[in-house]
Simulated assay, not measured.
Amino acid sequence: MRKINTFWNWFQDNNQTIKNLINETPIKQKQICYLLNKRLGYYCKALDFMIVFPKKATQTTELIITANGNPEYFIKVTDLINNAPQLKHWKFTAFIQPTENIDKIIDGLDDQYIFPEITIKTSEIKFLPLNYDDKIKKLDIIIYLKNYNIHCNTKILLQAIYIILQDLLGEKSLYQNINFVQLARMPKQTETLIELYELQLYIDTVNYN
């Protein structure tokens, strides 16, 4: 508890500097992020942070604490956020949360993910379950992509898919429910495939049954 209080005491003393980070020079931004990361590391070196800045200066700035999907440190994230102070214009969030743009994805109006040599939209991805392990309560899935043969066996593509899954499901749900991901080329007949945006609903159904 002492380490938690030490972190939040430092954060409260420096919250205005951190909130103004976006307006600083690149060098100053790097210095502030270094200090924040160092202070967070005193509490737990396995954790990282993300800062989401609002469109207007008067709106809330969000500090997200992430365990990078490592379940061994989920409790560390939860304990830290549960003891966060009440600060005006700040929101403190445990774990990277799922996207709130499901309607856009359903309508095919979602933004593209742009990676080196790869451009993907969540609305263009489908999946099928491969196996559900009752012991660990995790699901193996196969992800179907257009033009998969072009990027076949590239590490970047698999990393990209995990980023998309994390945005769709949220950090905690992804690593608690997904065990293995296999990639495949989208077949000509897709009637039996499931839209990727329905993955969380499928997970909830499997877990409930």
Rank of each mutant, 00 (worst) to 15 (best):
N209R: 12
Y162L: 08
I51D: 04
L193V: 12
L165H: 10
L169Y: 06
Q31T: 03
Q16W: 13
C44V: 06
E195H: 12
T61E: 01
N147Y: 14
T154Q: 10
Y202C: 15
T192A: 11
M186G: 01
A46T: 11
I178N: 10
T78F: 07
Q189H: 11
L196W: 03
A94H: 08
E195I: 00
K76Q: 08
I96Q: 14
M1G: 07
L201K: 14
A67W: 00
P85A: 11
A84D: 02
N101Q: 13
F53L: 07
E100K: 03
P85T: 13
P54D: 01
L145K: 12
I105Y: 04
Y197D: 05
K28V: 09
Q12G: 00
R39N: 04
N209E: 13
I142Q: 12
D103V: 14
Q31F: 03
A46N: 06
L47Q: 01
I178S: 06
I161Q: 01
T205S: 13
L158Y: 06
D110P: 01
F53V: 07
K138P: 04
T122G: 00
I143D: 09
I143A: 13
I4S: 03
T119F: 00
Q182G: 08
Y202R: 09
Q189T: 13
F95Y: 09
N14I: 14
T93H: 09
T93Q: 15
C33G: 08
K38L: 02
T122W: 01
K172I: 09
L35Q: 05
E117F: 04
L165K: 12
T99Y: 00
Q200P: 01
Q200S: 02
I27S: 15
Y162S: 06
L199Q: 06
L165I: 08
F115I: 10
L157G: 14
N207I: 10
F11E: 05
E100I: 14
E195M: 03
Y144C: 12
